[in-house]
């Protein structure tokens, strides 16, 4: 019973306090608020350590069992331990920054750069003017792609003392229809966050305890 009730009680108290302190600018509230933030950072740091331990255990088991992909697990394990190990010999000079500059940075940059190829190939194969909606999407995409590079500002004309170009059309698309859609999504997400927070504070939402919502209600 305690293992269910205590976390819910903690979440309720913490949630109510963080909501209340926003409206009560009393020094005592501020002190507890700062303390809560310090604790939050400590807990977050511990979860990172937990993540590393969990990662090592997962890959270690795969290597020990010689499961499919064990070689790659071995590479992950060696890389992880080597990086952690080199950090003990200094993070400003030596092997640690070398690993970052010569291995991690080029690898991450290369993987991201590959997107250019996939985007080009996927656009060629997937963007088809099959319907009115698809054509509109295609046209808007083309305008924004051209408008977001300097050539887009060159394609256009002057009228009424103003420059009408693909660049300005792209800006309008981003400023008006795209922005309206984004704002709608943001408001929806915000309302969803509020309702989920209220459900957690009231103990209705228990997914974070590894239970589905409402599970166990009436038993404790």
């Amino acid at each position: 019973m305690l293992e269910r009730t205590l976390p819910i009680l903690l979440a309720t108290v913490a949630g109510l306090f963080m909501a209340a302190q926003f409206f009560i600018p009393h020094p005592a509230m501020l002190r507890i608020y700062n303390l809560a933030l310090d604790w939050k950072q400590i807990v977050f740091g511990c979860t990172l350590m937990l993540g590393v331990v969990s990662l090592i255990r997962f890959h270690w088991r795969k290597v020990a069992r010689r499961a499919p992909g064990a070689f790659y697990s071995g590479v992950a394990l060696v890389s992880c331990l080597a990086t952690i190990g080199t950090a003990f010999f200094g993070i400003e000079t030596g092997l640690y920054p070398w690993l970052y500059d010569r291995v991690q940075a080029p690898m991450q940059a290369t993987l991201f750069a590959l997107l250019a190829y996939f985007v080009a190939s996927a656009s060629y194969r997937a963007f088809r003017a099959r319907s009115v909606h698809a054509t509109l999407l295609l046209a808007a995409g083309a305008v924004v792609m051209l408008g977001r590079v300097p050539i887009g500002d060159l394609i256009g004309f002057d009228a009424g003392g103003e420059r009408w170009s693909l660049g300005s059309l792209a800006s309008w698309i981003l400023d008006v229809p795209s922005l309206a859609a984004k704002r709608g999504i943001l408001i929806g997400v915000g309302l969803g966050m509020i309702s989920t927070s209220i459900r957690i504070i009231l103990g209705i939402e228990r997914a974070y305890l590894g239970q589905s919502s409402g599970e166990g209600q009436g038993r404790s």
Binding site: A120, S123, Y124, A129, L146, R148, P150, I151
Partner: peptide
């Protein structure tokens, strides 16, 4: 610019 133009060119070709 060249990258964007190439992608658009292929979109046109595909269509």
């Amino acid at each position: 610019t060249m990258g964007h133009l190439l992608i658009l060119l292929f979109v046109v070709i595909g269509n």
